[in-house]
Amino acid sequence: MMKFIALILVAFLQLTTSCSKDENPHEVVNLRVNHYKQTAIGFGPRLVLQTQESNEIGTDTWSNFYSDIEGFNYEPGFIYMLSIEKQKISNPLQDGSSIKYILKKVISKEKVSNEVTFEIKLKSIKLSDPPSFITGDLDSNYKILNEIEIDCNDLCENLSEKLQTEDEVSGIFKHADNNTISLISILSE
């Protein structure tokens, strides 16, 4: 009888230990979000947040963040420090994320200077099919994936030419007003 009780106790402990691991799919972490979005390929071409987590925070290393953060209203031109909850999704969609991100708190939101420059990939035959992340032309406003308007100043013709003739094109930008970015220079390969 004592062996039977011991066996039941061991089985119960194993069961509760394994269940408690599966029942605790939540983790709260700090996430730093950069002041601009980058072009990337997920389910097709898209704009993604640039983030830092854990040991990356405060370094020059930024990672593409392909998920949404529930409750977070991103505004370009600001660097954010967020407290987020990561919840494991038990049955994620095929090719979908297995983690749901929920905003717990905006720890800080710091505006970057309008003089800060940043690089965004505008065309890449290596990354995208079709290769251009740009919509519009010389006669209409250029935009990045119909989301971010580009003020190309006196570089519009040069940008148009590079998008037509080069395989890899990036732009160096500064923030302007109303979700617009100003093109400062063009890099191509």
Rank of each mutant, 00 (worst) to 15 (best):
I184F: 02
Y101W: 15
P130V: 08
I172H: 01
P130Y: 07
P25K: 06
K105P: 12
N73M: 09
T180R: 08
V169C: 02
N24I: 01
L9N: 00
S140C: 02
S63P: 00
P76D: 09
F65R: 03
A40P: 01
I125L: 07
E85Q: 15
T17D: 01
S97N: 13
S98Y: 10
Y36I: 04
T61A: 11
M1T: 11
K174H: 07
F118K: 03
Q50A: 04
H35E: 04
Q14H: 04
I186E: 00
N158K: 15
S54E: 12
L127Q: 11
L31V: 13
T16M: 13
F43Q: 07
S90L: 14
T39L: 02
I150N: 01
F78Q: 11
P130D: 01
I57M: 12
R46L: 12
V29H: 01
E168K: 00
W62S: 02
I8A: 09
N91D: 14
S160C: 05
K86F: 06
S90D: 15
E168G: 00
S170I: 01
L9D: 00
E75F: 06
K126W: 08
L159W: 08
S128M: 09
L7R: 04
S132K: 05
F65P: 03
N153W: 03
K105L: 15
K121L: 14
Q50R: 10
T16F: 14
K143M: 12
F133K: 00
E157T: 09
R32Y: 02
T39P: 02
Y66I: 13
D139V: 01
D167I: 02
V116S: 10
A176Q: 07
D151L: 05
S90A: 14
L47R: 05
A6K: 06
V169P: 00
G136W: 06
E115F: 05
S182L: 13
D68Y: 09
V112R: 08
V29A: 06
A176K: 11
C156A: 06
S124A: 06
D154R: 04
K162T: 00
S170T: 06
N55L: 10
Q50P: 00
E115G: 03
N146H: 03
I41M: 11
L127M: 13
V112C: 11
H26S: 08
F78H: 14
N178M: 07
W62Y: 13
D154N: 12
N158L: 13
A176G: 09
P130N: 05
A11D: 01
F65H: 11
Y74L: 12
D154V: 12
I102P: 00
I99S: 10
N30Q: 12
M2I: 08
G171C: 04
M81A: 05
